[in-house]
Amino acid sequence: MISRRSMLRTGAIAAVATVGAPSILHAQTKTLKITTWGGKWGDIMKATVLPAFEKEFKCTVQADQAFPFMPKLQASPKNDPLYDVFHTNSNEQWSALTEGLVMAKITAKEVPNIADVYPYAVSDKIVGVTIFTSAIGLGYRTDKGIPVPKSWKDLADPKLAGQRGGYLIPVNSLGQCHLMMLGKVYGKGLQDLDAAYKALEQLKPIKLVDFTGQMEKMLLSGEVSEGVIHDSGVLRYEGANRQPVEFCSPTEGVMALEQVLNVTPGSKVKELAFSYIDYMLRPDVQKLLAEAVWYSPANKKVKLSEKYDARLLTTPEKVATLIQPDWKWYNARKDDIDARVTRILKG
């Protein structure tokens, strides 16, 4: 009885203490609020990249790795946004732009290292600045006796019925890229949706996932023999985690999956935000992250080690195989496309 009562009392005091504790405010140092990825990328950011940045710029960085970033940014006041730097894939930057949540254009004037990036990184298909890109192509098993794919059309091989993998297009940008690519390969171009729908129909039966990570696992476990995936999702399984899975860049080209940074217009620390983007484009930072997660750096001056250089998009020729989706165009039609593909892939 006594122990129970004292236990309750201790708990109550502890609860009150927590509630009463004032939040610690960093009055002196500036705080930069960013979004960033988790996983291996997040580990390196937290262990190396961000501490070095904080030291150099005498600030603290609050890095949010918890999805979903967009609704959180939307819900926060525009003149005091939850984030200063917004890191997402390209398509989300376009949605954010239409709501006035991010800046339309960033130039070398604010971020000097932009002078050194490949043109795709700041092309008219990009809102903000691309710091890395992945290539979306085909992943395939080398142990299932299937022919080595060369073209996007190889995914339609009847032998792959039920063995091929794709995405729930409404929720996954790789699936959306794949749909546009089907328009290009089977029709008049990326925006030929009718051809894309027809081609999509031909891919049934197909295994569908919503997370990109799930596709990686299905390839690793052999649950699918061939599927749409980005190069990093295959190449980063090295050493002990290696499985007989290879990545193919189809001859028609690969779709770009850009990692984009942007600044929120209401940010109170805009200078620091631009400095952060500039810092992320520095060759040494780019090399560190690129080799950690197998992303192709956007800065032309980065020299990767041989192993990475061989597989990633590090030369103007290789970069030329990148096809950038027009997300502005896609997002404007997303609802119709979602309805249509859901109908096609149902059953």
């Binding site: 990825w37 996983g39 997040g42 790795q65 997370f211 990570g213 696992k217």
Partner: peptide
């Protein structure tokens, strides 16, 4: 929506972990 960076509860951390390392 209520967790802040560096103070995330286990379910949130697991969910985000799953997006990168399943």
């Amino acid at each position: 929506f209520l967790v802040v960076p560096k103070s995330e509860t286990l379910p949130v951390v697991l969910y985000n972990y799953m997006k990168f390392d399943l």
